[in-house]
Design a binder for these strands. Sequence first.
RNA 1: GCGCCCUUAGCUCAGCGGAUAGAGCAGCCGCCUUCUAAGCGGCAGGUCGCAGGUUCGAUUCCUGCAGGGCGCGCCA
Length: 579
Amino acid sequence: MNLFSHFRDIIVSDLAALDLPPGLDFGRVAVEPPRDSAHGDIATNAAMVLAKPAGLAPRALAERLVERLRRHDAVTAAEVAGPGFINIRLSDAFWQARLAEILRAGTAYGDGVIGAGRRVNVEYVSANPTGPMHVGHGRGAVVGDALAALLAKAGFAVTREYYINDAGAQVDALAQSAYFRYLEALGAPTDGFPSLQYPGDYLIRVGQALKEKYGPSLADKPPEAWLPAVREFAVNEMMALIRADLAAIGIVPDVFTSERAIVDSGAVDRALAALEGAGLLYVGTLEPPKGMLPEDWEERPQTLFRSTRFGDDIDRPLKKSDGSWTYFAADIAYHLDKYRRGFAEMIDIWGADHGGYVKRMQAAVTALSDGKARLDVRLCQLVNLFDKGVPVKMSKRAGTFVTLREVVEEVGKDVFRFVMLTRRNDQTLDFDFAKVIEQSKDNPVFYVQYAHARACSVLRHAAEALPGVDLTRESLASAALERLTDPAELALIRHLAGWPRLVESAAEAHEPHRIAFYLHDLAAHFHGLWNKGRDDASLRFLLGDAPELSRARLALVQAVAVVVASGLSVFGVAPAEEM
RNA sequence: GCGCCCUUAGCUCAGCGGAUAGAGCAGCCGCCUUCUAAGCGGCAGGUCGCAGGUUCGAUUCCUGCAGGGCGCGCCA
């Protein structure tokens, strides 16, 4: 359970029994951990937010609430502090019961109910199918995948989706480059061929494969004869590549949606017809952006979407000069498609360079769903690669960008995933090959993994030292947990018991990185407790002459392993049994 | 010019309207015959970019300014 929402319910019902003026809004009553644990276990601002509407002094109201709160068994102390905070201290028995709860639940501990089974669509990666994924794609992929797992843990019905941008000019350019490689494979002349937009080696194989499939039949033909076939072939090859790249970091999307399929199905026309019907389309002329006139700017009337009605800065074009739809138009149809598939909540993970696109997309979603659907866009900032502090030079044009696969082969999937989640998504992230595989507390991956491995190590020793003692989770849940009375032990239990609240708040905020910081804190508590056993042997987890106490402490150790594993599973990272 | 994001310790960063703002690294001082020292404890380090506003209360919300990043029709 989320003990904070549990006590919020208790506090609200106590408030209701206080004979306060009717109609008070308890919505702003918060129950949270105090910043300083010396203040107590949980704190509430209830008296401060209700004092004014209730016509009472904050401290007076607080005193009345405190008097009631003290009647609960789990509450050992409740006192008014500062301007009207109420600090509540909970009994050791309450905390010990949380430990049993953790052990009985296993890694399901922290599974939340705030999602209430609502469907949410998380769209991430969505790299153009024009080549292998690079590191920046990898960050978005991991953030999206972890967010999806986090939402699932919080009780949402999550769909992980990949949008294949296979309809624009860039896939034609891909086909051009693949065709060039095909001619090369045939040994056919390539002089006069335009310069390659995708010069990477990975298309050489595609050229070979085209030769094997088509023989020389596509050579000496005009582009309109070979382009569709080569394009489809190349896109399929690239998607196979991307799926493999994703699989290498443990990502398997539930749904792939093709932009081309959306366009070909007429969905764009239908979506825009809906906007037209709502009076949200018109033909107009945009002014050039001030302060940076594009060189080839010419005034031209265009079909525009009235995104300004929904908070955008200017209305946005939907048709290119050649009459085809812009990417935005297709994206409108795509998001309408998602909405029609039953997703009133959508989350898109984009690169930060698409930031200017957010408002118009949200405007379109609001317009098409009549305000019933919500789109949150998480922008991922750049990943800067370093090796031992020296920047790794990357140039897409020169083809020297570092692929996701290379990085993952170097550091491993688990390290890559964890590190990608150690920063907020809108903060740039430095990724140093040397540092992320360093085995020290400088490296949060290893620090957290080490805590898990240590816990497993104790449990392995326990199996030898206490033969015949049942060390399963279920059995440890009924150990003599009341014997855990050391302040450091109870502090660790408190931290473990904060996991459900952390899951809920991170899920609500769409911020998976909070888990990384939680796990780091948890590991620190555990490492600290471990070392207390070095200074004072009576505080060790495993005491050969005290099997009952040992079992209680092993319950704590097991719970640490459970919660670490639970957190890592949201990240898609395997917990280390030993290191 | 306009929009979005960022600005917190020497460095890299957390911080959910709440109390004396926290980690890690770097620096200094300690702790291994004993469950993993890949670790732990301690010391030191801050005008939360600046100025206003809202609030009982602002690092957190709002406005303005400054600095950095990203972007700004016919790329996606």
